[in-house]
Simulated assay, not measured.
Amino acid sequence: MLENPRIVIIGGVAGGMSAATRLRRLMEHASITVIERSANVSYANCGLPYHVGGIIPERDSLLLQTPESLHKRFRLDVRVSHEASEIDRTAKTLKVRDLVTGEVETVEWDTLILSPGARPALPPIEGIERAHTLRTVEDADSLIAASANAKRVVAMGGGFIGLELAENFRHRGLAVDLIEAAPQLMAPIDMEMAQYVHEHMAANGVTVHLNRRVSAINVTNVVLDNGDVIDTDLVISAIGVRPDSTLAQVA
C-alpha cells in the first residue's frame, strides 16, 4: 500500500462523505479529494420536502457541513459545483469540469471511489421537461420559486417523496392531486396498512388518483391515461430513482 495515496471520491453527499471521513480516520496522511456536482455537500436531504413546505424555514438548517468545515476538521479537499466527466483507468486520471467557470482539469488518483448516488426516474411522456424533481438543495430552491404563486399542484408518485411533498404543499394551503399507477400508495407496505395512508391523505385534503398514470403534461394541466384533465400550476415527478452509473459504464 502506498504511504500517501491519492484518493478521489466522486459524490459528496451521504455515501461519498461517509467514505471520505472514515478514510481520513484510517489513513492520516492520504490525500483525499471529493468531487460533488451540486453546490452543497453533506446536507440533510430528508428535510428537503419540509423546507419546501416551510416547516424547516431556514435553508441553512439543511446544510450540515461545508467544504471549509470539512477541510478544517478532516483535511478533505472538497470541490463543489464540479463534475467528473471522464475516467481513464489506464492512466488513473479523471477529467473534472468546474461547472461555474467551465474550466476542465485532470486529477490523478491511486484509488477512485464512485458514489454519485441516483438520478430521478422520469417517465417518457409528452411535456416531462415541465416537471420538477427533488433530489438536491438546488431542486428545493427551484420548487420554492416555482410554487411561490401556485394554487394547484400535481405530484406523480405515491412513495415517500410524493407523499411528503403532498403533505407539505397542503401545509402551505395548495390544492394537491396525487397520481399513483399502483392500486395503493406506499407500495412497500401491505394494502391493509396503506388504507391508513389513504385515509390520512383524504382527511388532509389530498385528492388521490390510484391506478392512474399521467400521459401528458401541458402548460396549465395534465392529462391522465383515462383522458381526465387536471388543471395545475406545477407538476412534480416523484416516481423513483435510477442509479447514476453512466460514468462507470463508459470508463
Results as ranks from 00 to 15, higher is better:
E103H: 07
S142P: 02
L210K: 12
E83C: 13
V223Q: 13
T93R: 05
R119H: 07
A140V: 01
R97W: 05
H132G: 06
V222C: 01
T136K: 10
D88E: 11
Q184S: 10
G11N: 09
V223T: 12
V250K: 14
V78C: 09
D244Y: 09
G12Q: 02
P120F: 03
R119K: 15
L62V: 05
V104E: 08
D231S: 14
L114F: 14
A202Q: 14
R212A: 15
R97H: 00
R25V: 01
A39E: 09
T133V: 06
V208Q: 03
W109Q: 00
G157K: 05
A187L: 14
L112K: 00
P57C: 12
N221D: 12
A148T: 02
H51F: 12
T90Y: 00
A194N: 05
A251W: 10
H71M: 05
L64W: 02
V137W: 10
R130A: 06
M1Y: 09
I125V: 15
E28Y: 10
F169R: 06
L165W: 11
V80H: 06
R170F: 02
Q65S: 13
R25A: 11
E36T: 04
E126A: 15
G16F: 04
G158P: 02
A131R: 08
A166G: 07
L165P: 11
A248E: 11
S31C: 06
V96K: 02
S81H: 11
A182Q: 13
A91D: 12
I230D: 02
V153G: 05
T246M: 09
H198D: 00
N204F: 03
S61I: 02
V250L: 09
D177G: 15
A146K: 11
P124Y: 13
D190Q: 08
G157M: 07
L70H: 01
A175S: 14
S69M: 07
L2A: 01
A248S: 15
P49W: 05
D88N: 14
P188Q: 06
S85D: 12
V8T: 00
E167H: 09
R213G: 01
V206Y: 06
R59N: 06
I179E: 10
D244Q: 15
V229Y: 10
A44G: 12
N40M: 06
E86M: 12
M186L: 12
